[in-house]
Simulated assay, not measured.
Amino acid sequence: MTSSSSIAVSPVHTRGFQRLVWALLVTSWGIALLSLGLSLSRWAAIGHAGGWVDWLPMPVLPVPAVLAGLEPPLAMATHWRWLGAALECIPGLALFYTVGCVHRICRAFLAGAVFGPEVVRGFRGLGWGFLALLASSLVYQASVTALLSWLASGQSGGLVVLGLGSFEISVLVVGLMMLLLARVLAEGGRLQAEADAFV
């Protein structure tokens, strides 16, 4: 007769697995909030020099504008700052949707449902979230460089920069992999349900 102490504990219920899930959950939300906060503070800093601006742990201009060789304008009207902050929300919304899907997956893992329909929906949403990050990144690159170059030219011209680098390619690959994983998990759940019904 097997004692209860000798029964193997599922890896899903081990403390190490639980700590890893909590670490993923907290880290994903922390990075998303920090990223949005820094992105919005950037638009409060553009058009200023010295003081607190020098303490920002990032370039004052968005990365696409830096790569395009644009210089920060010496001054910027408040309504253009609000427009820039709104542009930051384009990839920000996709990021928070993706983190929300990670949250859904982690909650299901913590509840012990590793292969349930909630996890399948979470991974499917995660895949679409990464693809939305890719699309929003391209829209953001084009719009933010158009705005800053237009302001730098005295509102008489400008340029649109659109780049497809390693970040965008990685996001595309990961998004497609998450969609594929969701299909595999859904098929695994279907086969398990058939097996349980047969038994």
Rank of each mutant, 00 (worst) to 15 (best):
W43F: 14
W43M: 12
I46M: 09
I46N: 11
H48V: 12
H48K: 14
A49C: 09
A49M: 09
A49P: 11
G50R: 12
G50H: 12
G51I: 15
G51F: 15
G51M: 14
W52F: 13
V53D: 14
D54M: 13
D54Q: 14
W55H: 15
W55G: 15
L56N: 15
L56P: 14
P57N: 14
L61Y: 14
P62G: 12
P62D: 13
V63R: 12
P64W: 05
V66N: 10
V66K: 07
L67F: 10
L67G: 08
A68G: 00
A68I: 00
G69H: 02
G69E: 00
L70R: 05
L70N: 05
L74K: 05
A75K: 07
A77V: 00
A77Y: 01
T78H: 05
T78P: 04
T78L: 03
W80K: 01
W80Y: 04
R81E: 08
R81S: 03
W82M: 08
W82T: 09
W82R: 05
W82G: 07
L83P: 04
L83G: 09
G84Q: 07
G84A: 08
L87S: 09
L87Y: 07
C89E: 12
I90G: 03
G92F: 13
G92S: 15
G92R: 10
L93Q: 03
A94N: 03
L95M: 11
L95R: 07
F96T: 05
Y97I: 05
Y97W: 07
V99D: 08
V99Q: 01
C101Q: 11
V102Q: 09
V102D: 09
H103G: 08
R104I: 11
I105T: 10
I105E: 14
C106Y: 07
R107Y: 11
A108L: 09
A108R: 06
A108S: 12
A108W: 12
F109V: 15
L110C: 08
A111S: 08
A111R: 13
G112F: 05
A113K: 12
A113I: 10
A113G: 07
A113P: 08
F115P: 06
F115Y: 09
G116N: 06
E118A: 10
E118I: 06
V119A: 11
V119I: 13
V119M: 10
V120S: 08
R121E: 11
R121Q: 13
R124A: 07
G127W: 01
G127A: 02
W128R: 02
W128K: 02
G129Y: 04
G129F: 02
G129D: 02
F130Q: 04
F130T: 01
F130Y: 06
L131Y: 02
A132R: 00
A132D: 00
A135S: 01
A135L: 03
A135G: 03
S136I: 03
L138P: 02
L138C: 04
V139P: 00
Y140C: 08
Y140D: 06
A142N: 00
S143W: 05
V144R: 06
V144A: 07
T145D: 01
T145H: 04
T145F: 02
A146M: 02
A146H: 01
L147H: 05
L147S: 03
L148M: 08
L148Q: 05
S149C: 02
S149M: 03
L151C: 04
A152G: 04
A152K: 04
S153Y: 09
S153N: 08
G154N: 07
Q155H: 06
Q155T: 10
S156I: 15
S156T: 14
S156R: 10
G157H: 10
G157T: 07
